[in-house]
Design a binder for these strands. Sequence first.
DNA 1: TATTGTTATACTCTATAACTATA
DNA 2: TATAGTTATAGAGTATAACAATA
Lengths: 154, 154
Amino acid sequence: MDATPPTREELCPFPLRQSIGFLLVRTALRLRLLGNTILQEAGEDLTVDQWGILNLLWESDGQTPVELARRADKDKPNVTRLLQILEDKGYVARQPDPKDRRSHRILLTEAGRAIKDRLLELGSTCHERACAGLSAQEVATLKDLLNRVYRNVF
Amino acid sequence: MDATPPTREELCPFPLRQSIGFLLVRTALRLRLLGNTILQEAGEDLTVDQWGILNLLWESDGQTPVELARRADKDKPNVTRLLQILEDKGYVARQPDPKDRRSHRILLTEAGRAIKDRLLELGSTCHERACAGLSAQEVATLKDLLNRVYRNVF
DNA sequence: TATTGTTATACTCTATAACTATA
DNA sequence: TATAGTTATAGAGTATAACAATA
């Protein structure tokens, strides 16, 4: 007779806390929270998602909402909402596209350009905090694995 | 004179789409979406977060909300809400703890036990889809790196 | 017909604080 | 004083659908 009680593994052969999904989601949430906390403690009235849109514009000013949505991996309503917030805060302005009257160019204002260096610095702070103790090679490996999983689930 | 126009890297030395935060968050969101889609297409009226709570109970029935919150990495109000949903759906029941009248034990109902095998199978489906093309070693590496980043940002 | 951008709606999860009952 | 659990509130993000204007 086998009177051994079942182990946790036998009771649940797919344990939540060892699953990629759990580890991925909880880390992403904490990292987003850290980013928002860093922004808040620096006195910036911005979320990480708003920061992301500005980041794309610092790299290339004058993109359309559709381009921004594609590069930020967000849907159109989300980008519309974020741009509305950024416009209200005075960091971006909409300019009608003379060639295609459906379309708009999103342009940084002077204020939007002025905060660039400060906010990039906060981004680096967040990155260094998150990747502390990881070698450059390990960071590259993590990025590669995340990209491969992303392509699998896209 | 140097008339070379500035490169994107010079314009924005911290590009969003190469940052760990961006790659992590977008992958986590897509994976969560895939999980919810798999559950929905299988006809299960559950979200991945609700699935996660059930998973913890399949491993060890009769935990308190505080234990579940700690193991699911959620705060108390979140767990209360998820347990309310699961109770409404008939998968769990609350039992007062005779030793500590503040506390409750969360117990699986017959229905909650009955869906275990089916839902674990869906979990495996999601995992295999996400990790397709990754070796067991690579999956282990990804988990290790995620855990190290998590501890950095916790 | 397809695309751009917006609006509306509903849902999930998160964070914070405050409250009760009990220890 | 501290803990267990709940409730309330506010906020962010996502998905879907639908719409008007334009191509």
